[in-house]
């Protein structure tokens, strides 16, 4: 049996073109693409957090994003999730305007719709993704209500189903996440992000700070949700072992730019860029 489709070109589910996030006005020097000092302009001190980032995410794919702290990984993720306004660039989601409309140019109302129906985000810091005083089920209900859910019974059923999928005991769904351990909070965030069956899941350092056994649980969960829900995942991680295990392809970011991209095992076993080599050689 052969299942590889014959169409030569697959359509990406998410396409990001020329994403640039700039803090500051910019000056003649840096706006004309002159070399920067790290990621900031030596003249006007404008910070270029993301600088002309291009990427494609294909259906059912996990795309890894690695890079040092401050390289713009989280800025990129948050821009895609509309948390930060972008300075320049466009992004196309297959579910939005058949992949032809730039979602950064959408109205506030449309952005809210895209955010609630088509994307899910898991932040490095659970405080950003969860309301710590609401119950775990309430957090999921918040997302369901945002997408138009009004029936208490069906929302409760959906919440318990999702929490069960991430191995949170049903007896604890009425407790607020502030009572939960870090790993549990992260798992509640994942179930919240999955609430409306998004096509794209943005995972920002989900395993950082978790002990090994909990980390294994979360990794297992990520792979399972890809299999069961068929979502495409953008996975930011510092942990190259996590990237190797999960990601199909990987991009490497440095100073706001993507400096290398390729198949994950190629990036890790045959890195081309000096920074990537340094990164891989720093592995324990």
């Amino acid at each position: 049996m052969q299942t590889v489709k014959n169409n030569k070109k697959e359509k990406p589910i998410l396409e990001v073109r020329g994403l640039t996030v700039r803090y500051g006005q910019g000056c003649d020097y840096c706006l004309n693409g002159q070399p920067l000092l790290k990621n900031s302009c030596p003249h006007c001190k404008t910070v270029w957090a993301c600088n002309d980032v291009n990427l494609e995410l294909y259906p059912g794919e996990i795309l890894g994003v690695v890079g040092e702290s401050g390289s713009g990984k989280s800025t990129m993720m948050k821009s895609i999730y509309f948390d930060f306004p972008v300075t320049e660039g466009s992004a196309y989601l297959q579910a939005y305007g058949a992949g032809k409309a730039n979602m950064f140019a959408a109205t506030a109302q449309q952005k809210k719709y895209i955010r609630n129906h088509m994307m899910g985000m898991v932040y490095q810091n659970p405080v950003l993704g969860l309301r710590m005083d609401y119950s775990a089920a309430g957090n999921i209900a918040e997302k369901l209500i945002a997408a138009g859910g009004r029936n208490f019974g069906s929302m409760t059923a959906r919440a318990s189903q999702l929490l069960e999928a991430v191995e949170i005991l049903p007896g604890r769904m009425k407790e607020p996440p502030k009572n939960f351990s870090g790993g549990m909070q992260q798992r509640v965030q994942i179930s919240k992000a999955l609430a409306n069956n998004p096509q794209v899941l943005l995972l920002d350092e989900v395993t950082t700070g978790l002990d090994l056994s909990v980390q294994a649980k979360v990794l297992d969960l990520i792979r399972r949700i890809r299999q069961e829900f068929g979502v495409s995942i953008l996975l930011v991680s510092h942990d190259l072992a996590v990237i190797r295990m999960l990601a199909d392809r990987t991009v490497v970011m440095l100073e706001g730019k993507i400096i290398e991209r390729g198949l994950t095992d190629q990036i890790l076993d045959d890195p081309q860029h000096p920074y990537t080599q340094q990164l891989v050689h720093s592995l324990l």
């Binding site: 590889v4 489709k5 697959e10 649980k217 990794l219 297992d220 295990m245 392809r249 390729g262 198949l263």
Partner: peptide
């Protein structure tokens, strides 16, 4: 194209080394 390689690896080309690469808890 990288996507072609991924699809070929999934369905047509196998690679076996003496090391086992497996996710924990699998």
């Amino acid at each position: 194209d990288e996507r072609q390689i991924i699809n070929l690896r999934r369905a047509e080309i196998g690679y076996v080394s003496q090391f086992l690469a497996i996710l924990p808890r699998t």
